[in-house]
């Protein structure tokens, strides 16, 4: 149980996927500014992260490595993500039509999200086992969600502010995100303090 919280808090706050590792930054700067879009996209990313980790880990361990084709990992992972996105879309359409507007329309965007592929690659490079990988997928998805949610509030204030013409849009978002990233850096020592490791 202690390990579970160690991994989750590490992934959400200390090694946050967006603010510390710099993955999946693009969705922060999309023009959508209502919180429904933020939650829909973040929930889709979390769902695809969990599903793709659950598929990619066994495929890597039991297919790619035994056949000596682990150099194909990037190609295989990309296809797994794309296939799962398509499958999830079809299943939601068929069995949970009520979720379509909330979740389904954001699913295609997750296929091109580098946080998802980055997570799969990191699970493999770090040599994590399946349980560890699944918990980090949960933590990484929640960390993405947290940053998306916080940044949505900041972005609406940045949009309302009177800033020089050339700084409007992406440039000002990047600088706002940079200041937000500084506050995440302040959490670096959190794990040591909490778990004494």
């Amino acid at each position: 149980m202690k390990d579970f919280f160690y991994i989750i808090i590490g992934a959400v706050l200390v090694n946050n996927v967006v603010m510390v590792k710099g993955l999946g930054i693009c969705p922060l700067f999309g023009q959508g500014n209502d919180s429904r879009a933020v939650h829909g996209l973040s929930a889709s990313v979390l769902l695809i992260m969990l599903l793709s980790t659950a598929c990619a880990w066994p495929v890597y361990r039991f297919v790619l490595v035994p056949f000596g084709i682990d150099y194909m990992e990037t190609i295989v992972f990309v296809l797994i993500i794309a296939g799962l996105v398509q499958l999830a879309e079809i299943l939601i359409e068929r069995f949970l039509p009520g979720l379509r507007g909330k979740l389904g329309i954001y699913l295609p965007l997750t296929a091109s999200n580098c946080a998802v592929l980055g997570l799969l690659e990191q699970n493999i490079t770090a040599g994590r086992d399946l349980a560890y990988s699944m918990i980090s997928a949960l933590g990484t998805g929640l960390g993405f969600w947290l940053v998306m949610f916080l940044f949505e509030g900041i972005r609406s204030r940045v949009d309302a502010a009177d800033i020089p013409e050339s700084f409007r849009g992406t440039a000002s978002y990047l600088i706002a995100a940079s200041i937000m990233g500084l506050s995440f850096m302040g959490l670096t020592g959190l794990l040591d303090g909490l778990f004494g490791m």
Binding site: M19, V20, S166, A171, L174, S178, M180, G181
Partner: peptide, 20 residues
């Protein structure tokens, strides 16, 4: 701090503004 992600975001933001 320029060596970490926040520094990268800041540098890129300023460079994009200059380029625009």
């Amino acid at each position: 701090v320029f060596l970490f992600t926040p520094g990268g975001l800041f540098t890129l933001g300023v460079l994009i503004a200059i380029a625009r």
